[in-house]
């Protein structure tokens, strides 16, 4: 658990972060989003003390981070940045082993861990273990960057626009790998981005920042449907609002549980915008839904997709104005 209590940071006369308080729960995926200069990266970098806070307190599991040596604190967290920052003179293996080596893990354990991480991030260990960073593509480099951050099994992962420099396809695959990894390991993630689609896709909760203040902190659904300010509405964007709205719910959420239908079924976790796409592609208004074990879980109707939820009132306006 990460707690910010009235934390501030000034650089000269400029206030980067202005008395911000929030809590990130254990295992939560928290996205910080905002325009550039909003203070989101500063907040992230204060968590591992790369930037010292001027005022207020930051606690991890109730312990003030000032009571720890910065290096010790950082070794307990993963850190991934947009420009990756792999050590160019070290092999992939040695890069990934950075923190375990600093922590003095025995060699065989490090080696096994590197193999495990390379496989987890879809990099063939035999091929890439001994490669140097300049031999890898941008996407592969960031895979190694993520592996390096996860190496010492940190309970917190800090990510500063990790996928912003990647092409859309690579970005999407890394996003789903990250999702899978964090669900498997239960790692708490604090993730900075300026891309709302990415935020909506990954986050448990989204914190929107502007001018050093946290102006809204809510679930993706709430951000879409009840934006706290015009800025949040702008960040969400008016284009394709309906599809974004659909994307934050799944087929399982809206399926009629008692109904049954034959044909190729959708998994319950399919986002609704995909389900809509599927209906258009198949020229149908109803699709069967199955759960994780392949058992029928109901039928999704086109009319259920356009049926608005009670909490959609505000967001519906936003969409309507587009």
């Amino acid at each position: 658990m990460i707690q910010f209590e009235r934390v501030s940071k000034r650089f000269g006369s400029w206030t980067a972060v202005d008395t911000v308080s929030f809590t990130v729960d254990e295992g939560e995926f928290r996205v910080l989003i905002g325009p550039s200069g909003s203070g989101k990266s500063t907040v992230l970098r204060m968590i591992n003390r790369l930037i010292p806070a001027d005022g207020g307190a930051i606690r991890i599991d109730g312990e003030d981070i000032v009571s720890l040596k910065p290096e010790e604190l950082r070794r307990r967290m993963g850190y991934v940045i947009q420009s990756v920052g792999l050590f160019p003179h070290w092999t992939v293996e040695r890069n990934i082993a950075t923190v375990p080596a600093l922590l003095g893990w025995p060699k065989p354990r490090i080696r096994d861990r590197v193999t495990e991480l390379l496989e987890m991030l879809n990099l063939d260990p035999r091929r890439y273990r001994g490669a140097y960073p300049h031999q890898l593509s941008g996407g592969q480099q960031q895979r190694v960057g993520v592996a390096r951050a996860l190496a010492a099994e940190p309970r917190i992962l800090l990510m500063d626009e990790p996928f912003s420099a990647l092409d859309p396809i690579t970005r999407a695959s890394l996003q789903s790998e990250l999702s899978a990894i964090r669900h498997r390991t239960g790692t708490t993630v604090v993730f900075v981005t300026h891309d709302m689609d990415e935020a909506l896709r990954l986050a448990d909760r989204i914190a929107v920042m502007d001018h050093g203040r946290m102006i809204q902190c809510a679930t993706p659904l709430e951000i879409l449907t009840r934006p706290a300010s015009p800025l949040v509405r702008d960040l969400v964007g008016r284009e394709e609002w309906g599809l974004k709205r659909l994307a934050v719910e799944t087929a399982g959420d809206r399926a009629r549980r008692q109904e049954r239908l034959g044909g190729i079924a959708l998994p319950v976790e399919t986002p609704l915008h995909r389900a809509l796409s599927e209906m258009v592609a198949r020229g149908t208004e109803r699709l069967p839904v199955v759960d994780g074990d392949g058992r029928p879980a109901g039928v999704l109707h086109l009319s259920d997709l356009v049926r608005s939820m009670p909490d959609d009132a505000a967001g519906g306006q936003a969409g309507g104005r587009a």
């Binding site: 950082r74 947009q82 990756v84 920052g85 050590f87 160019p88 600093l102």
Partner: peptide, 18 residues
């Protein structure tokens, strides 16, 4: 030395000497 490399080194928990 690229700033990103230094940022990563510090962020991963290397001390000034390391």
């Amino acid at each position: 030395v690229a700033p990103a490399v230094l940022d990563a080194a510090r962020g991963l928990g290397m001390g000034p000497a390391e």
